[in-house]
Design a protein around this nucleic acid. Sequence first.
DNA 1: CTGTTAGCGCTTTCAG
DNA 2: CTGAAAGCGCTAACAG
Lengths: 344, 344
Amino acid sequence: MKKKLATLSDIARQLNISVSTVSRALHDHPAINIKTKKKVRLLAEKLNYQPNLLALNLLNRKTNTIGVVVPEITSYFFSSVINGIQDFVNDTNYQLIIGQSEESCEKEKNILQALAKVRVDGFLISPTSETVKPDYYNGLIKSGIPLVLFDRDCVGAKADKVLVDDYDGAFQAVEYLIKTGCRRIAHITGPSDLSISNHRLNGYLDALKKYDLPKQEHRIIEVEGFSPEYGVKAAKKILESPDLPDAIFAINDGIAIGAMYVIKEAGIKIPDQISVVGFDDEPHSSYFIPPLTSVWQPVYDMGMLSARILLNKLSRHRQDKSLRFELLKPELIIRKSSLNLPRE
Amino acid sequence: MKKKLATLSDIARQLNISVSTVSRALHDHPAINIKTKKKVRLLAEKLNYQPNLLALNLLNRKTNTIGVVVPEITSYFFSSVINGIQDFVNDTNYQLIIGQSEESCEKEKNILQALAKVRVDGFLISPTSETVKPDYYNGLIKSGIPLVLFDRDCVGAKADKVLVDDYDGAFQAVEYLIKTGCRRIAHITGPSDLSISNHRLNGYLDALKKYDLPKQEHRIIEVEGFSPEYGVKAAKKILESPDLPDAIFAINDGIAIGAMYVIKEAGIKIPDQISVVGFDDEPHSSYFIPPLTSVWQPVYDMGMLSARILLNKLSRHRQDKSLRFELLKPELIIRKSSLNLPRE
DNA sequence: CTGTTAGCGCTTTCAG
DNA sequence: CTGAAAGCGCTAACAG
């Protein structure tokens, strides 16, 4: 049933010339008679000839595809990064193959293995929250497949990296809260294995330190996931305590949104009684009431840049060993879920 | 620099046997000496031999990849469908290549063309809002690449289809609004070329008709996009009119959220003065205050089912001409952005 | 200007 | 039980 598409030799046979002539004609090789070219082109058109990329790939030992592996695709964050990657790659002749690790280290490994088998030319990876050791990554690199890590770091991986300065984002957010008068600032942090959790936590702690505010263990709540239901849980725990905070800095918008929900339901006023700040600046966040103050990250750019770096590396034949480490700057977007900064 | 992986002939040479023997040994061919098998296996292991899929693909004229083309990947809706597809495909040896048409018919065509060139075995497509004519789809099908359409229909396409009963979802929503006492129900509809827009609009109209409520043109507002900002625009237009509605049924949650924002800002009470109902039941929707009533769709199942149908078709050698048409049932999830249904 | 040949890595007859 | 050879579709070096 499978219809066979026309091949070079089909054309060659019908025209009584050799395959190589046909190939050359189609590639506009200078040393080919104009008339022959025309003949070939015409027939190719008529037969709807499509070069068989499989053959080319085999010949070139190159597939012009790159593998993108992210923890999940449904979050605004990762899908936007992928968008950036796509848009960059669109202007090239590369294709994307996308895999989801679902935060499972083993799944990630399987995907990587499978994609290596189909001979992707390179990888764009955001590690799972379980991924601790860089061994497998380094194995891939050693076997000749370049790889760039984005958003999440994996220390020890000998790869290019494109990260966001999470520490700085968190610091900005918390410093801002302090400047607006908040003194009892709670933090909802993420899984402690995750680089971004730690960086944001450190930003939070250092901001407190800078203003001589004490670190209070009971104000730091850890959640295992990033969706609103975890925020709900965390916020309930916070509200149970008699010692209410006057601000909550959440690891991301999903958590912040869940928290806001609980707080508002409890009749507590945002931001008058409690300020709330998130991270990611998701598109819906500005439509809550009050609109959520959040740390914006250059997600799209992160995708673009990662792709650019990978393709760049791919195009250089002589592998240069230098590794790029890019740290993109986040930006605090102030909305009404936090107090106004009094003019200084 | 590109490290060459071990090939069959590498193994053959080192063992002083022929490639075919190696190939057979690795495939556990019955007619091969056990000792030879062991030798071969051992060396293959040691050399970390990986079969070259490119060669296999060329040989089999099959790539074991399927192309997924959606308007966008950043929306919860499509990324969840993709999730379903992924999960189904994971248990097979197929890979996914994902493309975004960005609602542009031309872009879609380009992607389809590119993916056909890399010889994907089949397509899973959700047409753009511009796509009207099924010609290109039918061309692909005729050329031997099977294709299933999901979520959005394209009349005339000779493909399997997996759709959601949008008409029914809309009807449920509006009937419910009527039963809770709403009489002046506005509808924010989507691009009129889009099948889902029309089906939902028709559901809305027929529900009105069933209860002898007049169709009022000025209560039907069309938007060109699905994100909150369009909802904001539409809601502002609605609020400008002196003749306020007592309910708004929005084409999707994004629009509903934008509308809710404007309404609440205007000091109008939801649901006391205006009920709001969306479509899609996005994960954030239940965390707004009031939580958004919405029509849930079996997105994940839609992905699963589409993939199942495609792979099924791919596995049958003799193409059976029968086309499947699946209409999945949506479900109204009642929350507090609409009035309670009085017990009947 | 054009044809012949070899080879990318693998499977599969066809012969031993 | 094993090997030789052909072929998937294409390109490129080498001859004319």
